[in-house]
Structure formats: C-alpha cells, structure tokens
C-alpha cells in the first residue's frame, strides 16, 4: 500500500516538473514561433500574388483584413463582418451586421486597431463587446482584400475542407473578377506519392488563371495529363510558351492525379465552393457598403 502511495507521489512530482519545464520552454519560444508563422503566412500570400525574390513587393500594396463571424441572437442568425475603416494612417475596425438576406442590421465601432486584430482572442473579445452580452459568436473565416495605390487588385482567402483522409487547408488568390491567381496547399494529410501530389505544381497550377465562370463549373477528368501541359505547369518551358500552353487548357477540366482521383476531386470541389461562396459574400458586402456609405479602407 505504501509502495503505491510513493509511486503515485513520485509520478505526480515528475509530471509537475516536466510540465514546468515544458511551460517555461513554451513561454520563451512562443513569441518567436508566432512571428515565424506570420512570416511564413505573409510569404505564401505574396507568393500567390506573384511577388517573391525576383519581384519585390511594391510599397503601395496594402492588405486589408475582413473577418466574418456568425452571430446568433435568440435563435436568429446574423453575419457579422469586422471591417477595417480607414482614418489617416490608423486602422480601426467596425463591425457590420447583416441578416441572412443580405440587409444591414446595424454597425458598431470596436476598440480594435491594426495590430491587435491579428490575435484571435483579442479580436473575439472586441467583437463580443461590440455586440453586447448574451449572444452566440462563432468565427467563420478571414478574407484579405489586396489594394495597390487604393485600387483593388486581389482577394486572398483561406479555407479548410475535407480531403480523402482528413482536412485540406488551402490559401488562394483571386483577382477582382474572381478569376484564380494562384492556389497553395498549406496543410493536408493525403497519402504520400498519391494524394499528397495535390501540393505539387503540376496539379495545383492547373487552377491558375481560370476565370470565375470556368471555376464555377469545374470538373475533374480521369485522363492522363498531356506532357506539354505538365511542362508548362512545372515552368520547365519559357514564360511565353507556358502562358500560351496554359491558355489552351484554361477552359478545360482538371486532370485528376493518377491513383488519387478522390483527392483531386475533393480539392477541386473545395476550391470551387470557396470561390463561389466568397464571390457571393463579397458582392453582398460591397452592395451593403455602397448603400450605407460605410467608408472602409479598401
């Protein structure tokens, strides 16, 4: 009996010690880790927009964050958009509530400013404060409007949808007409050598440059990928050639990966869903903003 007590005591003490060490390590490294994630995210975003080592980001380019929330109030659902509203050099956020038909319900200023909005907890708290107590709040998604000297050049949106095994997490860039600028697979757990090929250039670049109308009706076909197209997708030919070849296939369907038709289809359907929903929401939001004359920064 005494033996068991010592065992329990010693195990507890060792667990506490281990927890202390891990906690200390977490506190020390957390800031740097968040910073790295942020840098990586930014790199992906600028990469999708076509900026990189060879083409630096122009200083006139600005990113404006839109956060979408679903707010439940006594059984009724509202969509809350947290929008950056521009004042000279300082970003403030306004919460605009829409009902499900796309009509504006109300708008409230929040206490959030530019840098704070990045932290999910501070953001959620600020939204909670703005809508008042006793309401349900759920974060839905995050869209970024990219402007160059005040003119809209692109939208960046992230999204998660089911893949063959678990979830596929993507980020994609659309132009103002909702045509695809680029697609990046951030996270997935598909099978290596089969479904995992979705992150390779020869698959994901098939989405590049497709117009909104094509994206809406995009299908996956089980046909071998033409060799010429593959070379263009992997950028093995000159830029002009690649653009010409890509142009030929722009209105055609997506060629499925060999041995991973379901992964290919899941990704295509997921992207299709993200783009159509985003286009609908942004159209509704733009109309409301214009009707109500809300001065947003994008």
């Amino acid at each position: 009996m005494k033996d068991i007590l010592t065992i329990v005591f010693r195990l507890t003490v060792s667990c506490l010690m281990a927890a202390a060490v891990m906690g200390a390590a977490f506190i020390v490294t957390d800031k740097a880790k968040k910073h790295n994630e942020h840098v990586r995210e930014e790199k992906t975003m600028y990469g999708l927009l076509g900026y990189g080592a060879r083409k630096p980001v122009p200083p006139t380019l600005a990113l404006h964050q839109i956060y979408r929330y679903v707010i439940t109030d006594q059984g009724r659902q509202h969509i809350g958009y947290l929008l950056p509203t521009g004042r000279e050099g300082k970003t403030e956020y306004t919460l605009v509530l829409l009902d499900l038909d796309g009509k504006m319900v109300s708008q409230q200023p929040t206490r959030l400013d530019g840098d704070q909005s990045r932290e999910k907890e501070t953001r959620d708290r600020a939204v909670m404060e703005a809508i008042g107590p006793g309401k349900g709040l759920r974060f839905a998604d995050h869209t970024i409007v990219v402007t160059d000297s005040g003119k809209r050049v692109a939208y960046l949106l992230g999204g998660k949808f089911p893949g063959f095994k678990t979830f596929i997490n993507v980020m994609l860039a659309l132009d103002p007409q909702y045509a695809m600028l680029g697609l990046e697979v951030l996270e997935h757990e598909e099978d290596p050598g089969l479904g995992a090929e979705i992150e390779k250039n020869y698959f994901k670049n098939q989405f590049k440059g497709r117009s909104f109308d094509v994206l809406k009706g995009l299908q996956v076909v089980k046909e071998p990928l033409p060799e010429q197209y593959r070379q263009a997708l992997e950028a093995q030919v000159t830029e002009e050639d690649a653009a010409r070849i890509m142009g030929q296939y722009r209105a055609k369907n997506i060629y499925a990966l060999t041995g991973a038709t379901i992964s290919s289809r899941m990704l295509t359907d997921g992207v299709k869903g993200l783009v159509t929903k985003c286009a609908y929401r942004l159209d509704v939001l733009d109309r409301v903003l214009e009707e109500q004359k809300i001065a947003v920064s994008f």
Partner: peptide, 26 residues
C-alpha cells in the same frame, strides 16, 4: 522508483522532445 522507471523515462524524453520541438519551431 524502480517499478515506474519506464514511465519516468518516457516522461523525460517527452519533455525534452517537446522543448526541442518548440525551440525548433521558434
């Protein structure tokens, strides 16, 4: 305690792996 040495080893390894994991991520 000799009867719980394997759990203790696992705990120790897990702690250091977590620390190194966090440090590498940072």
């Amino acid at each position: 305690h000799p009867r719980i040495r394997i759990p203790s080893y696992t705990l120790t390894i897990a702690t250091w792996v977590t620390v190194i994991d966090l440090a590498m991520a940072a």
